[in-house]
């Protein structure tokens, strides 16, 4: 069978594969948002004065960076439910794992961003009597996040691509749907290439959106 007839054979399944993009995006987006919130909290612990919190945050980060993501996912989806007798949906397991994992990476990015903010900003806010929490929220984090926007965009793109791992626990994302169609037809090249192209276009769109957003954020320069 030549390549074209292969594509025409699965033609009716192409929309099914392409629609997996929404599942992929959903997982990436929910994970990125929870990862970012978690990352901010962790980074504040890391730069704070309370030693035990800083240590815990560092420990947390080292755990999630020091083990394979696919193993973390398997533990959350298969192992933990067996232990506590609670049934978790594949989607929930996916966003929990990715959110926690992304939080670890995000916290390092945000921490470096906070450290890159001029010390004078802390002093100016302090000299005006601005309390610590308000200073972080209104003065320091906005500047830090602006500095790390490219790195955060990168993290989001990585997350989008890495989310293909959820296919291993049966979430019907872009990757999994291509595998399903491949198995149904015993034909691998066409469906996998479809998801290949969709991933690529998705990442390109995200990259462009990221650049536009960055430009908008830099209007105060």
């Amino acid at each position: 069978m030549d390549i074209f007839s292969g594509f025409s054979l699965i033609a009716h399944s192409i929309p099914y594969i392409v629609n997996g993009v929404w599942t992929t995006l959903e997982i990436a987006l929910v994970s990125a948002i929870s990862g970012m919130i978690l990352g901010i909290l962790l980074s504040l612990c890391k730069i704070g004065r309370i030693k035990i919190l800083a240590w815990l945050a560092d420990f947390y980060t080292s755990i999630f960076r020091g083990t394979p993501l696919i193993l973390q996912l398997t533990i959350v989806y298969f192992a933990t439910p067996q232990l506590i007798g609670y049934d978790i949906s594949a989607f929930l397991a996916a966003v929990i794992t990715f959110g926690f994992n992304s939080g670890a990476y995000m916290s390092e990015i945000i921490r470096s961003g906070i450290n890159a903010v001029d010390k004078g900003q802390f002093e100016a806010a302090g000299a005006l009597g601005v309390p610590y929490g308000a200073m972080m929220k209104d003065i320091i984090l906005p500047q830090a996040i602006k500095k790390i926007l490219p790195a955060m965009m990168n993290e989001f793109i990585t997350l989008t691509k890495e989310s293909a791992i959820v296919s291993t626990i049966g979430v019907l994302d872009l990757m999994r749907r291509a595998q399903v169609v491949a198995a149904e037809n015993s034909l691998y090249f066409p469906p996998l290439i479809v998801s290949f192209v969709v991933y690529y276009i998705l990442v390109m769109i995200l990259t462009i959106l990221g650049r536009l957003f960055e430009r908008r954020m830099s209007r105060s320069d």
């Binding site: 001029d118 004078g120 900003q121 002093e123 100016a124 806010a125 302090g126 000299a127 005006l128 009597g129 601005v130 309390p131 308000a134 209104d138 003065i139 906005p142 500047q143 602006k146 105060s220 320069d221």
Partner: peptide, 30 residues
């Protein structure tokens, strides 16, 4: 610190806020 103001050598204005917001932020917040 409300009572004692400070002006720095390197200004340390808040770069992400307009001039007006630089002036109004602390009075509103603090």
């Amino acid at each position: 610190r409300e009572k004692v103001g400070m002006v720095f050598q390197h200004f340390h204005l808040f770069p992400h806020k307009t001039v007006l917001e630089n002036l109004t932020y602390a009075p509103v917040k603090v």
